[in-house]
């Protein structure tokens, strides 16, 4: 739209519509995602984020419109689309009865890869789950489950990954871990489409942000572009206080860098995730 996109987009959605009975969840959604970028779809509960993800991952058929993923049409080439993607749904898609390692081996086998055990061990290592690998997932914490969930999605190195509210219900440390994983993925060339209702998440991660509301994309652009939609900055003097998150992470965190002062002069808002901050 704004910057020229050299290559064809990895994800292209045009005029996507979907109704459930009388409820028009999607009323014509259009957007494109460039290869290797992180695209965040922002919206409140019930805005239709999950419906978009499900349509893109061939879990439901739209009423109208088209979507292509990695060059394949979701309606007519669904098998190829499924080869190209991984879905990490809103609720951790792990098998609680199996161990972490068995979950990974299961997915590797279903992706018909050679050496599923080696793949599992490598991912356990990478996601810091080696010790927990032999335990049943039912004993895992929320953060560990999410990590395993994402690890399962990486098996087979799909070029496109959908993350539906990947950090909902996670504590701040686990959230930072997930963010780090997402950044690493994109840096390695994976295209990431994530949905979130946390504004900070979109700010922190996304190359481009789209706001989904009322079944349509209201605005779409980089963070800077979105910020320009509002009147220019008005200089105010505000007493700088550490956000509770900074305090929490400084006291508890091993992952968050414990810099209470400085470093966050721009990004920090006192209450991080309140929608009313950003109209």
């Amino acid at each position: 739209m704004s910057i020229e996109t050299a290559s064809t987009p990895t994800i292209r959605v045009q005029g996507l519509e979907k109704s459930f009975k009388d409820l028009h969840v999607l009323r014509g959604v259009d957007f494109e995602v460039t290869r290797g970028s992180i695209f965040a779809m922002l919206g409140s509960n019930g805005a239709g984020k999950t419906t978009v993800i499900k349509a893109l991952s061939t879990l439901l058929a739209p009423d109208a419109g088209t979507a292509t993923v990695n060059g394949f049409d979701t309606a007519t080439q669904s098998a190829q689309v499924r080869e190209s993607i991984s879905l990490t749904g809103q609720f951790a898609a792990v098998d609680e009865v199996l161990t972490g390692r068995e979950n990974l081996v299961l997915v590797a086998k279903l992706r018909h890869l050679k050496h599923p055990k080696a793949i599992a061990d490598e991912l356990l290592e990478r996601f810091d789950l080696t010790e927990a690998g032999g335990r049943r997932v039912a004993t895992y914490s929320g953060g560990m489950r999410r990590r395993l969930d994402i690890a399962m999605s990486l098996i087979g190195d799909p070029p496109v990954i959908f993350l539906d509210e990947p950090t909902t219900g996670l504590d701040p440390e686990a959230r930072l871990e997930v963010w780090q994983t997402v950044r690493t993925l994109a840096a390695a060339g994976t295209t990431v489409l994530l949905t979130t209702q946390q504004l900070e998440e979109a700010e922190q991660l996304a190359d481009r942000i789209a706001i989904l509301h009322g079944g349509r994309i209201l605005v779409e652009g980089t963070l800077a572009e979105l910020k320009r939609l509002l009147p220019p900055t008005e200089v105010q003097y505000v007493e700088k206080q550490p956000a509770l998150e900074d305090v929490f992470l400084a006291l508890v965190g091993k992952n968050g860098d414990p810099t209470i002062d400085g470093a966050d002069a721009e990004g920090a808002h006192p209450d991080g995730t309140h929608p009313k901050d950003l109209p």
């Binding site: 879990l59 951790a92 898609a93 098998d95 279903l110």
Partner: peptide, 13 residues
């Protein structure tokens, strides 16, 4: 009920 069903459905199986 869990997400595992949808994971299977979105995989090339």
């Amino acid at each position: 009920q869990g997400g595992i069903f949808e994971r299977f459905q979105s995989m090339p199986i």
